[in-house]
Each structure stands twice: as structure tokens, then as C-alpha cells.
């Protein structure tokens, strides 16, 4: 009897999870470091929107500067939009501007004062990635790849997800984990 109950419960949970579909992101509007406003709904026609919570002082995020610049370069012309978000309370707009120029980060970087957007996304570390559809479904959440040291990378998770989206396939791995720096929130 207990076995039957367990099987029924498992099936119910699986059906509910399937019926629930992907989680949705809430639209937001933020200014980038040059004062231009960006809303997620502005990009409803994009193939995908890559939202990257990044930092200027986090060594893990900094280890990915070149890889983020390369991803932007490789995928922007394929219709994918990249938005960096800096939610760290101690990193100023001037500091973010200098950091972006120094490291060749040419995608818009939005300043999330008082970590309101990090809270909406439940983002907790940098670099933390969310890939959204034009309709704001969360298609992928997690890391860029599986090693801070580029030479040790074995899975390029973000590239894989973007390639799947571009070819119209469902994203096979929708959640990954990695070490990162805690987002420094206002208290």
C-alpha cells in the first residue's frame, strides 16, 4: 500500500512540475552606467536575453571577464541580448565604468541600486546567469561554465544552452551550480 502511495505521489509531483512549466522573470527597468534605461520587455523580439549578475571586485566574476566579452561578441549578432547587472552596494557607477572599459565589456551594465532586481531574481552570487526567452520565461539559470580556470573547463553550460535555444531545441540542462562571491546587499 505504501509503495502504491509513493508511486502515486511521485507521479502527481512530476505531473504538477510539468504542468507548471518554466519559471517567469518579472519585468524591470534599470539605467545602465551611461544613463540609458533598459526594460526586459524592450527585448521581447530577441532570441534570448542573457542576464548576468556580475561584479568589479569579485575574483570569480573577474576570471570570467574575457569569457563574457567573447560570449557577447559571438552571440549578439545571432539575436541574443546581453545585460550585465551590478547589484553590489559598494561598487559605484564610476568604478563599474572603469572596470568595463578596462576589460572590454561592451554589453550594457545596469546598476541595481539597493539590490532590488537581485532580490526579484533571488540572485545570490557573481557571476550568476539567467537566460530568458523574449516572453521572460527562465530557460537557464546558473554558471557560465564549470571552472574558474579556463584550462580546466569541461562543460560550457551557457554556450550549450544558447546553442540549443538558437536551434529551437529545449534547453537540456536548465540549472547548474558554481562557486561565486556573495552579492553584497544593503542591510
Amino acid at each position: 500500500m505504501k509503495v502504491l502511495q509513493t508511486i502515486l505521489l511521485t507521479i502527481t509531483v512530476a505531473v504538477l512540475a510539468f504542468a507548471e512549466g518554466p519559471k517567469k522573470a518579472e519585468n524591470f527597468t534599470l539605467q545602465d552606467i551611461n544613463g540609458k534605461k533598459h526594460s526586459l520587455v524592450d527585448y521581447k523580439d530577441a532570441e534570448a536575453i542573457v542576464v548576468m549578475f556580475i561584479a568589479t571586485q569579485c575574483p570569480v566574476s573577474n576570471a570570467y571577464n574575457e569569457r563574457m566579452a567573447a560570449l557577447h561578441k559571438d552571440y549578439q549578432e545571432k539575436g541574443i541580448v546581453f545585460l550585465g547587472i551590478n547589484s553590489n552596494k559598494q561598487e559605484s557607477i564610476e568604478e563599474i565604468k572603469g572596470h568595463a572599459a578596462e576589460h572590454g565589456l561592451t554589453f550594457p551594465i545596469l546598476k541595481d541600486h539597493k539590490n532590488v532586481i537581485a532580490d526579484k531574481f533571488s540572485a545570490s552570487f557573481t557571476p550568476e546567469i539567467f537566460v530568458l526567452s523574449g516572453g521572460l520565461d527562465i530557460l537557464y539559470h546558473g554558471r557560465i561554465d564549470d571552472s574558474q580556470r579556463e584550462a580546466r573547463v569541461t562543460t560550457k553550460d551557457l554556450r550549450k544552452a544558447l546553442d540549443e535555444i538558437l536551434t529551437g531545441r529545449p534547453v537540456t540542462t536548465t540549472e547548474t551550480k558554481a562557486f561565486g562571491c556573495t552579492i553584497k546587499r544593503v542591510s
Binding site: 552570487f125 564549470d146 551550480k177 562557486f179 562571491c181
Partner: peptide
């Protein structure tokens, strides 16, 4: 070998943020 295995072994709820 995989940081994800380490994170999950400590707590499946943990994002990997440190400390």
C-alpha cells in the same frame, strides 16, 4: 572533481556563494 558535486554534497539548497 566537479564543484557542483561538492555544493550538492554539502546542501542541495546552497547556491555556491561564499562565505
Amino acid at each position: 572533481a566537479k564543484q557542483e558535486d561538492f555544493i550538492t554534497a554539502l546542501s542541495p539548497e546552497w547556491s555556491g556563494a561564499i562565505p
